[in-house]
Design a protein around this nucleic acid. Structure first.
Length: 499
RNA sequence: GGCGCCGUAGCCAAGUGGUAAGGCAGAGGUUUGCAAAACCUCCAUUCGUCAGUUCGAUCCUGACCGGCGCCUCCA
């Protein structure tokens, strides 16, 4: 285990060392379920999914907890706009979110706690803070006193004195008047009698945003987490506040390592709901293979911004996403390679210790080393490119006249694919199914029918049998004009859609 | 105002105090009835600009130019 991770708390890469050496307790801030997951969420959860996979592939036990925030004022707001019950609205988007995560190839967390079933834990934690003079009740609200916690600001590297107050705080004078210090934040917010809320020791209300993560993470993972992750935008105030609440309550360090992923950007600006410049994951699933989205998320280091491009037609409609299209071609190449390896005829594979390409033999280790170094996925993909090239070369050699592949090489290539699946969670699907799906989606996008194409291919095959190559080429050209490329192979003629 | 990040070939993108991974695009080739696929070769004397430290800097320091993030809900 040589995993090194960049720790936001210390500002440097350091060895990842769980308190219990072979068991990592990992908590990642999940979504507030008031809308569909967008690409920013997709990136975040792919990043932590790869982290968890990699730790496990390295032989570590990982308890992965990722919450679902199903109680929040944004849910309340959206519910009142749409006329739905807040609970029903949250449930609906939680289901959609789970589905999107699966389509992106993310593993389920071991525990997926929801705020709505952890109110008692939240009450207990808030009470503990009040008892310890870290929090106070003010007109039905409960606030955390930032001045009671000397370490406040240590994660985001700022101190109370230099923090400029946000506009909303300055404007909301009634709220400000209830606080002892402007940076004090709500642990519990009062609700009117007829509004969405719960009865608490301090009256009817709902939890503040930050307290839930402290309560749920400590409940499921203990007072000190080995790793806490989330998007870069959560560093302040969310994670800073989690540290304050948790450490004030327990007197122990809250998380040993803090990991934050960079944003997905559009035109160099952060993609976010508030800017309205976002694409939901499901918008994209209709246009591109979900695994290509996952692949694309790995083309940039997780801490760097990921800029999204698209093309428009004259009317301003989105016509394509070049980066996703490229990623989809790479994913198709991966699966084609896997398919070739799996399809090698047994007679072409001979026993004995033939030489094995270093790119095949060393792939699993190269993958591991790349990810050990602060989860360097772009380098992992570079190693993958070398590996796939070598596997294709192996297959090329085997399929030549009188060519053979050494069983040892084939087995190591197969092991390479297993490592890829385990570490990055790509290449996990059936090659036949995913390649057909990619092809048919592209055909559909061009308004082509598979059956018609296959009829013309059958005509051409007849022509080729009778050596009527002129007719064969006519069919090829006819289909090519529609964007259909024919692939003549030993098993017959296949087809694909030109890029 | 405070804190912080980024600027690498036509495009995307890793990286290191000792002379630039990988992908896309492009050029040539092997193979194929043709084509595609696959594979091979080539494709940054150069890492925003200017100084400095150093035997040596893209990587360290400073200034400047350009872009962005957080400080308010946000993955």
């Amino acid at each position: 285990m040589n995993v090194r991770l960049y720790n936001t708390l210390t500002g440097q890469k350091e060895p990842f060392e769980p308190a219990e050496p072979d068991h990592a307790r990992v908590y990642v801030c999940g979504p507030t379920v008031y809308d569909y997951a967008h690409l920013g969420h997709a990136r975040c959860y792919v990043v932590y999914d790869v982290l968890v996979r990699h730790l496990r592939a390295d032989g570590m036990k990982v308890t992965y907890v990722r919450n679902v925030t199903d109680v929040d004022d944004k849910i309340l707001k959206r519910a009142s706009e749409t006329g739905m019950e807040p609970t029903a609205l949250a449930a609906r988007f939680a289901d959609a979110y789970a589905e999107d995560m699966h389509r992106l190839g993310n593993l389920d967390p071991d525990v997926e706690p929801r705020v709505s079933t952890h109110l008692d834990d939240i009450f207990a934690l808030v009470q503990r803070l009040i008892d310890g003079d870290h929090a106070y009740v003010s007109d039905g609200d409960v606030y955390f006193s930032v001045e009671s916690f000397p370490g406040y600001g240590k994660l985001s590297h700022r101190d109370l004195g230099q923090m400029k107050l946000g506009a909303s705080e300055r404007l909301d004078e009634t709220k400000a008047a209830r606080k002892r210090h402007p940076s004090d934040f709500a642990l519990w917010k009062k609700s009117e009698e007829d509004a969405w809320g719960w009865d608490s020791p301090w009256g009817r209300g709902r939890p503040g945003w930050h307290i839930e993560c402290s309560a749920m993470s400590m409940k499921h993972l203990g007072d000190t987490l080995d790793l806490h992750g989330g998007g870069l935008d959560l560093v302040f105030p969310h994670h800073e506040n989690e540290i304050a609440q948790s450490e004030a309550a327990t007197g122990k360090p809250f998380a040993r390592c803090w990991m934050h992923n960079g944003f997905v950007e559009v035109d160099k600006e952060k993609m976010s709901k508030s800017l309205g410049n976002f694409f939901t994951a499901r918008d994209l699933f209709d246009r591109v293979e979900p695994e290509a989205i996952r692949y694309f998320m790995m083309t940039v280091h997780y801490r760097a911004p990921l800029n999204l491009d698209w093309t428009l037609d004259d009317a301003g409609n989105v016509t394509g996403f070049p980066q996703f299209e490229e990623a989809e071609r790479r994913v198709a190449y991966l699966y084609k390679t896997k398919q070739r390896l799996e399809g090698l005829p047994p007679k072409r594979v001979i026993d004995g210790d033939g030489p094995v390409s270093a790119d095949i033999a060393g792939f699993a280790a190269a993958l591991r080393e790349s990810l050990d170094d602060d989860l360097n996925m772009p380098v992992a993909l570079a190693k993958l490119a070398d590996f796939l090239k070598a596997v294709n070369e192996l297959c090329d050699q085997a399929m030549k006249k009188k060519g053979k592949a050494a069983r040892r090489a084939v087995e190591q290539a197969q092991a390479g694919f297993r490592a890829l699946e385990a570490e990055l969670g790509i290449g996990t699907q059936s090659a036949d199914i995913i390649l057909l799906r990619i092809r048919d989606r592209r055909a559909e996008a061009r308004g082509l029918e598979s059956a018609a194409i296959e009829r013309r291919i059958a005509d051409r095959t007849e022509a080729r049998k009778s050596k009527d190559f002129a007719e064969a080429d006519r069919v090829r050209n006819e289909l090519a004009a529609q964007g259909v490329e024919l692939l003549d192979g030993p098993e017959g003629t296949g087809w694909t859609i030109a890029d």
